[in-house]
Design a protein around this nucleic acid. Structure first.
Length: 320
DNA sequence: AAGACGAAAGTGGTTGA
DNA sequence: TCAACAACTTTCGTCTT
């Protein structure tokens, strides 16, 4: 939603606080009353240059003022207009007619496009909020969706699918991968549909994707399993060893992450059942078992685990 | 009784002819 | 386009704790 502020007008008509009658103060961020703390208005117009560009050379050229540009407004804050009525005078009768038609079509197309983007973005917002994704990823998702629309990739596909896929892609790009299951739950679209659309749009938009890194999942899974930071670190160590031995290729990253966490928890005496780990990682126990077996074999962790088990046994016997 | 383990059959995607 | 194939899932019986 676009808010317009008329600060000059406000300043003129409202220099005193409505509540206590004291004079209002202004700073860069808000208009407020020093006496009673009443905030009359926050987020005023940004009078400075756009600060998105840090490169000093380019920064000189960027003299657009106002708030930073954002993908969040469905028309980027700038809509296209083809010609205007005063331009019409420049054409002869025939071309004038043509021009009129183009203008009319452009209007129609932009309205349709805008309507599409608006509903798509509100769906995208909803999913992103549900998954508690950062703003930057939301923006990325919107950028991807916009590209998809412009390349005519949405036609014949439901908008929701493309939105879900765009968000999924955005997460992957920013190394905050969500599982297809999570996206599926948030968007109520089938997992395989999202996957299919995801593959389609990354191919068509030539977005090069690398397989996601298991390490990126650890923090989130560990948090859900309420594992200690030490265990998390251990799991990451295990993953690093795993990657050195090239055990990760071809395997599902979530399965590997899950197995590493399972092992780390076992070693640090915070045991979780395979089922618990499997559930948060969105894989089955069988997969964890398979990965687990591979990992402890190749990383020579068998002894460690066995010792641990023996110790646990002793502890339980002592207590009983 | 719950968890771990493993075999067997099925699913969806990739690859190479 | 189709068959082979690798990874993963589902299901189920057995063993361990």
């Amino acid at each position: 939603m676009m808010k317009t502020y008329n600060i000059i007008g406000k300043m003129k008509e409202q220099t005193r606080c409505e509540i206590c009658g004291e004079r209002l103060r202004f700073d860069r961020f808000q208009t407020y009353c020093e006496n009673c703390g009443n905030v009359v208005e926050d987020m005023p117009i940004n009078f400075g240059k756009e600060f998105a560009n840090v490169d000093p050379e380019k920064a000189e050229k960027r003299t657009r003022t106002g708030s930073p540009m954002t993908q969040t407004d469905s028309d980027l804050g700038l809509s296209t207009n083809v010609g205007n009525f005063s331009d019409l005078k420049k054409f002869n009768a025939k071309d004038r007619f043509k021009m009129l038609r183009i203008m009319r079509w452009n209007k129609r197309v932009s309205v349709a496009l805008e309507r599409n983007l608006k509903s798509a973005f509100s769906e995208l917002n909803r999913i992103s909020n549900y998954l508690k994704l950062p703003k930057s990823i939301e923006e990325e998702g919107k950028r991807i969706y916009r590209d998809a629309v412009q390349r005519n990739l949405v036609r014949g596909r439901s908008m929701e699918k493309v939105v879900a896929a765009a968000l999924y892609t955005a997460c992957r790009i920013n190394d905050l991968p969500r599982t297809l299951d999570e996206l599926s739950e948030a968007s109520s679209i089938e997992k395989k549909e999202i996957g299919k659309t995801y593959r389609f749009i990354t191919r068509e938009l030539k977005i090069r994707m690398y397989p996601s890194n298991p390490v990126d999942y650890i923090a989130r899974f560990a948090c859900e399993l309420k594992l200690s930071p030490g265990t998390q670190t251990k799991a990451v160590e295990i993953l690093e060893m795993t990657q050195k031995k090239e055990l990760t290729s071809g395997r599902g990253p979530t399965g590997i992450a899950a197995a590493a966490l399972y092992i780390a928890a076992l070693i640090n005496g915070e045991k979780r059942t395979q089922r618990e780990v499997a559930d948060v990682a969105g894989v089955t126990e069988v997969t964890i078992r398979n990965r687990y077996k591979e990992l402890i074999r190749k990383l020579k962790l068998e002894k460690l685990i066995k010792n641990k088990k023996r110790k646990n046994l002793m502890v339980s016997q002592q207590s009983s």
